[in-house]
Amino acid sequence: MQKQGFGHTGKRDLPEGELKYQIRINLSEEFASVARENPASPVLFQLLQVLREHDAHLKHQKMAFANFLPYFKNEELAEHVKNVDEALLKMADAGEHDGGEDVAAAFDAAMAADDTDDVDATLEAMQALRDATNAFIERHADNPEIEGYKEAVEHFFDRCCRLYLWTKETVQKQMVKGENGFYSTRFSIYADGGQEVYSKDVADQLEADLQPLKEAGMIKVIQRFDSDPKNNPQAPEKFHI
């Protein structure tokens, strides 16, 4: 069996039960400003030494978030739309349906709203899309393939609203805060050959080797994340459409 874990560069298929991990750190502002400008600076010698031992490098979290946005729009969104379209074709093969023109129109409106970069307006349009989708599902509740359609739709809303739009709002807020925001000092560590996520053993040793830098004040926060979405920060309620 496979389960999907997600990072800001896309999805990963992981064997059932096999969690992968990522270490993220917040540097003190003095070192964070250096790392943002030149992550190979000699000023970061102690940190770079630890990273070399783990075949690792830093990625500024704001950049990771920002990179995810075009990835979703240019690649992942098309995959979700394809899955929904394939589910509709299966419904058509199993029995007639009305085509969902109202859903298609609501989808176009939601995408147009997203192009304005107004997250609240996009959420409002997404709610209209959800309402149209729910009405379509209710109209065709007896179709033998309706469950497949519902599953494809849920994946779309989960990723588009609870991750993409939440990430987009986070990036916009950080742009306003500039270098004073939490994520301005936040870095993900790609380790074990530059992997975004890695084994527990690698994460354990990396975290242990970073502790002296935290005690010295260079690092303010060390956090561990895993590849199970349930264990990661959850989107605010307004994104649960």
Results as ranks from 00 to 15, higher is better:
M1C: 09
Q4R: 10
Q4P: 14
Q4F: 08
H8M: 07
T9Y: 15
G10F: 01
K11Q: 11
D13G: 08
D13P: 09
L19G: 04
K20G: 10
K20P: 09
K20M: 07
K20Q: 13
Y21W: 06
Q22S: 12
Q22G: 11
I23M: 02
R24E: 15
R24Q: 12
L27V: 09
E29T: 13
F31H: 06
R36G: 12
E37N: 08
N38P: 13
S41C: 01
P42H: 04
Q46A: 14
L47S: 04
L48T: 12
H54K: 03
A56T: 04
A56C: 06
A56S: 02
L58R: 00
H60D: 08
Q61V: 09
Q61H: 13
M63N: 14
A64N: 14
A64V: 10
A66P: 14
F68S: 09
L69A: 06
P70D: 06
Y71N: 14
Y71K: 05
F72W: 10
F72V: 03
K73R: 15
K73P: 15
N74T: 12
A78F: 15
N83K: 10
A87F: 05
M91Y: 11
A92Y: 11
D93R: 07
D102L: 01
D102R: 00
V103E: 01
A105F: 11
D108M: 07
A110S: 12
A112E: 11
D114K: 02
D114C: 07
T116S: 09
D117L: 07
D120L: 07
D120W: 05
A128M: 06
A128N: 14
L129F: 10
R130L: 10
T133R: 00
N134D: 15
H140M: 03
D142F: 09
N143K: 00
P144I: 00
E145L: 01
E147D: 15
A152E: 03
V153N: 02
F157L: 03
C161I: 00
W166E: 08
T167A: 15
E169D: 13
T170G: 03
Q174Y: 07
V176D: 11
G178N: 05
Y183T: 12
I189H: 02
Y190W: 08
A191M: 03
E196L: 03
E196Y: 04
V197M: 06
V197T: 11
D204A: 05
D209V: 03
D209W: 02
L213E: 04
A216C: 06
I219Y: 04
K220T: 13
V221A: 05
I222T: 09
Q223V: 12
F225H: 06
D226C: 00
S227A: 04
N231E: 00
P233E: 04
Q234G: 06
A235N: 05
F239I: 01
F239W: 02
F239Y: 10
H240I: 10
I241E: 13
I241F: 12
